[in-house]
Amino acid sequence: MKELKVQPIKDGTVIDHIPPGNAFKVLKILGITESLPDSVISIAINVVGKRGKKDIVKIENRELKAEEVDKIALIAPNATINIIRNYEVVEKRRVEVPDEIVGIVKCPNPNCISNTKEPIKTRFIVKSRQPLKIKCYYCEREPEDISSLIM
């Protein structure tokens, strides 16, 4: 039987398999509340699925593109992006860590220029995906505990 813990939508995007409790962070990283002020967005938190608890976000009337969604890979590495057309899942994609991570991770180096009031976003170059290794574009520090640095 089809698992439908959230209200069905006709067209749009469902972001599934977000680690429980991270739905709001996903929305924040996507910046969706600002960029899509007229979209209806529903979220479900702590949904019990086949593989334990998860969060789900669904966005009506908007098909998110890969490069928009890949930004969430840091906090939701197992998320799936489901494109819904006429109530059916017509496309399913996994997120991928992008080559650069901009404005999401804070540099742990207190003396880094990105931790000052300069008009720049934090920027990390992805050196490896498995295991995830990133390097600050500015000070070249390679943080250990990346998840604790997500802004």
Binding site: N111, C112, Y137, Y138, E140, R141
Partner: peptide, 12 residues
């Protein structure tokens, strides 16, 4: 400049 990465930023 005393901050690491300042020159890289300035170049931008």
């Amino acid at each position: 400049h005393p901050k690491e990465g300042s020159a890289r930023m300035a170049a931008k």
